[in-house]
Design a protein around this nucleic acid. Structure first.
Lengths: 347, 347
DNA sequence: GAGAAATGCTAAATCGATTTAGTTACAAGC
DNA sequence: GCTTGTAACTAAATCGATTTAGCATTTCTC
């Protein structure tokens, strides 16, 4: 019997179960909702239905339930925040909080919102179900995409509200930091405090935004000193990768005296490698991060950051999203937000 | 005209729009899906429909769309991870990853999964829409609840798969660390290295699990030394709160030489306060955290942690969830997981 | 033994959007 | 004048679960 649950090919609905047991769908539904007592179904029938539910491997269709449970007095808005698994969740949760705040402010008797974070495998956004036929969300915020995902988005126009964060795509509403600004400011800070042997710490898999930051940094340093900074490549985005990459940097080079890391996870690893090598921050090596770690201000020493101004970006994102969900705006736009510079003790 | 969008009282569906414009719902649907060219709708009609959609403030019903788009060959499972806004996300993301892995392994031609994180305002889980009538999820993992949420759950039995993490509730499947163990082990570690003036750092709003850890810690210290540890209360869970609380502790007491912080955000703040006061870790003050921060191993010095064994908990949670979604298990259970002890440099 | 009450179930409508298989009106072609 | 073609639409079925009103039986009451 149990084996059937594995081998089922055809859909199992309340109707299937009803047929199997020899009752009506109403009876099945009653049992599924645990209302068989108040509706006086015979205990034997209840048991038979329960058994069939188990044996046939029934999975309720939530869409059908929700449609049925629909209250026609309220409009329900489903908002999705789509991000890849590999992303730092802290930023995503900032977005969520702000979206939720905006949603709460707009919630009323005839209007409800639900906001959820949905993750996709990096580079496989296109496989996410319900995106294309608009059957999952009324509006989405897409972030932390890989180039494959960007390519997918570039050739797709979705028939509902979409805001893309941190990427430039001609056919979408995009909110991102002003191109080139971040890398340039980071370079200026390090050069400004006298560092001359500069390095940039990047992950091996670059996104549109990390690539651009690194590029602008390199270009600025090259323009101002005539020497390109060393490019230190870490296998991943986490501190372990950052520490590893920096240790190998120190063992093969004389070692930099100014470092820009395109993610704070990498900075944190770099901190350890720098301190372990006997160098001090910022005296021997000045470090600039980007501010994508929740507690960059509690690193030791607190991390100077030049990165996207997250609050400003999220504010724009939320505004755009709600305007688009209200059909107040439809055309693609690019919105540039100036970078955020937070001077702390590390540079 | 625009004003109508604000004032609408009744539902706006494709049918409403059709009536308003004087066409059939089919025409409206065609325009909404941007398929009016291939289906040869007159441009003037398209414009009229578009205008009505805007003016009436139409919001598509995603449940209806999804039901219609349903492929009867596949069973779709919606899994929700429910957490409060205020919680550290690192744990949630671990849960998500593991659930996704389990889901990916079970995905096949007739079976698809989607996993999303949904947040509720702490203490207001009961207000989350669709929870009670099972119209949102096929299964949920609930975590980071406040006592109000626990009370709600204790009196509610949901008609689908539910796993509660880190709380004890008689009517649910609960996975959590063995009660009392964590606080006891933390105390033993600090006492074992000779610390005698102990303190426990807690947030002002305690959850079931943080309260229990603190209590067991106090009880163990009291039993072994005859003196209860000082209770340092921080306003929140973040480093700023932790630092503030510890600074005030150092200014009014002689100061502890062993500290247990019930969340790593607090530990990070405590680190700063301890170092700023000229004390060294662990020589002057030994610190034990819980391991709920992604990078506790990159704190300076790396944080010794006694806390729930997250991997083990998540593994149990995922197993239970899928068993329950398959109707292979239905009864409430309590599953205790032994604590994880990671000795690093801070104690 | 007639009527009332309880028991145990079912038929059919409903939620909102989409799509398939038409239908109607009008112009073009012979 | 009749067929053919095309432009511009519509009617109705459909997705799956739930619920309301109602229909048979059986049991109870006097």
């Amino acid at each position: 019997m149990r084996a059937m649950a594995r081998g089922e090919k055809r859909p199992v609905t309340v109707h299937t179960i009803a047929q199997h047991v020899g009752v009506s769908p109403s009876a099945v539904s009653t049992v599924l909702a645990n209302r068989h007592e108040e509706r006086r179904l015979a205990p034997a029938t209840v048991d038979k239905i329960r058994k069939a539910v188990r044996d046939l491997g029934y999975v309720p269709n939530v869409a059908a339930r929700r449609l049925r449970a629909n209250d026609p007095e309220v409009h329900h808005h489903d908002i999705g925040i789509l991000t890849s698994f590999e992303a730092p969740l802290f930023l995503v949760s900032r977005v969520l909080r702000q979206v939720q705040r905006a949603a709460d402010a707009r919630t009323g008797p005839g209007r409800r919102f639900s906001v959820s974070i949905d993750m996709f495998h990096a580079g496989r956004l296109r496989e996410m179900g319900g995106l294309l036929n608009a059957s999952r969300f009324n509006g989405v915020i897409i972030t932390n995409t890989l180039p494959e995902d960007d390519a997918f988005l570039a050739e797709t126009t979705l028939p509902y509200a979409v805001v893309v964060v941190g990427r430039r795509l001609a056919n979408h509403c995009c909110v991102l930091d002003a191109p080139g600004e971040i890398g340039r400011r980071a370079a200026e800070i390090l050069l400004g405090r006298g560092a001359r042997r500069l390095a940039v710490l990047v992950p091996s898999l670059l996104t549109q935004s990390t690539a651009e930051r690194a590029e602008a940094f390199v270009a600025t340093v090259l323009a101002q000193t005539g020497v390109a900074p060393v490019r230190v490549v870490a296998p991943g985005l986490n501190p372990v990768s950052g520490a590893e990459a920096m240790r190998s940097h120190f063992s093969t080079h004389r070692g930099c005296d100014g470092l820009y890391a395109v993610s704070d996870g990498l900075s944190l690893g770099a901190y350890q490698a720098i301190k372990d090598s006997g160098r001090r921050i910022p005296k021997d090596v000045a470090v600039v991060g980007v501010g994508d770690h929740e507690h960059a201000d509690f690193f030791d020493p607190p991390l100077t950051c030049v990165g996207p101004s997250n609050d400003a970006i999220v504010e724009q994102v939320v505004t755009q999203l709600f305007q688009r969900m209200n059909h107040r705006r439809v055309n693609p736009v690019e919105i540039f937000v100036p970078p955020s510079v937070v001077m702390r003790a590390s540079a």
